[in-house]
Design a protein around this nucleic acid. Structure first.
Lengths: 206, 206
DNA sequence: CCTACCGATCGGTAGG
DNA sequence: CCTACCGATCGGTAGG
């Protein structure tokens, strides 16, 4: 399980942990060097700049999320099935890359242009994948939501909190977390559907 | 509506906007001074330190959230009623203090002890208010959740994303946002309750 | 609220 | 991977 890491990978991994806990800006190259047991200047034999580390982490995570949702959607099925698999895939990536996910979610704003724009475009594309599944579900009557974009963002934000409390040694496995999140988001807390929304009950009139 | 602000309030408000967009660490006192149209040294006639600004924002927002949930729970009612009112109260505070909420939610880790500990204790106490409502609802059969703590955090994280996209001039009012969030979180996306609940009733025994 | 300035620290480079 | 060092900038103070 413990792969031998190249120095560059060590730098990236250590920096990721520091970026998560202290934030990108508050982490100095000397902090990073100390954590690695070398001098600050030595880091530059392996990387070009502090921001390069951030870039690598952000875009590697973007790729991971896309690969995961691609695999999740490949099997097809109902909108419910696809959403549940997309949620599970997202949670798998989050829990398997806890530190890097935190950096991806919170430190991206320290990217400079043009990569910042690229990052934001990728994120929107990823969110669109969730919007599409929800849209399909609304169209065929599986789902009822106030607004597709709103629903997609609410779901993703519910998932994205996971990295703040997830511990590999905790009592819930990533698969169980995903199942519980799916349950909460698809079925809600209430034991019965309420006549809450006459406002948009015209949507679910069957 | 536009109250006359004291210089100290101006400093705090301008700093809050900068902390939100650039982050606390990446915002320099010279950035702040430039935004205010004065010299950096002049700021210190009004505040003691950069961190004092962060402290004031974080603890003011904590107070706002508590006052809001106090008012929301005062009316009593079913767990469903109380949860819906707590959600609406939380969203009101978030949308009414967009920048300060972002700082409260994301920049608190730059507080130093002992205030950091105080902050974390307050946040846990606030989350406990939601856990209590959920627990009451589970007990009397209104709600079914995999885990009360898990449910409270998922709900709060769903709400807390609001500040990233809310715009006062947007098409949804804070009250509508709250209603839509309540609808999604209480009833879920699915048009019918699935037989999923049986799936995790065994998970609880693990 | 300003000028003048402080010691500390920042990201990064030169040269080995 | 190190020593030695750079110019820039940091949060903050003295004194008016």
């Amino acid at each position: 399980m413990e792969a031998i890491l190249s120095r560059k990978e060590q730098i990236e991994r250590t920096a990721t942990a520091l970026f998560k806990t202290k934030g990108y800006s508050a982490t100095s190259m000397r902090d990073l060097a100390t954590a690695l047991g070398i001098e600050a200047a030595s880091i530059y034999s392996h990387i070009k700049s502090k921001e390069e580390i951030l870039q690598r982490v952000c875009f590697r995570m973007a790729q991971e999320f896309f690969e995961a949702i691609d695999a999740a959607e490949e099997a097809g099925g109902s909108a419910t099935d696809r959403l549940k698999r997309a949620i599970a895939a997202h949670v798998q990536v989050l829990t398997h890359n806890k530190e890097a996910s935190a950096v991806f979610l919170h430190e991206w704003r320290h990217l400079s242009e043009p990569l910042l724009g690229t990052y934001l475009a990728l994120r929107d594309k990823y969110e669109a994948r969730f919007r599409e599944i929800i849209r399909a579900g609304v169209k065929n009557g599986e789902f009822a939501v106030p607004d597709e974009k709103f629903a997609a963002l609410t779901i993703l934000s519910g998932l994205n909190w996971t990295h703040t409390w997830y511990k590999p040694e905790g009592k819930m496995t990533p698969a169980e977390i995903a199942e519980n999140l799916s349950e909460m988001l698809l079925n809600g807390l209430s034991t019965k559907k309420q006549a809450l929304h006459d406002t948009y009950s015209h949507l679910n009139t069957i």
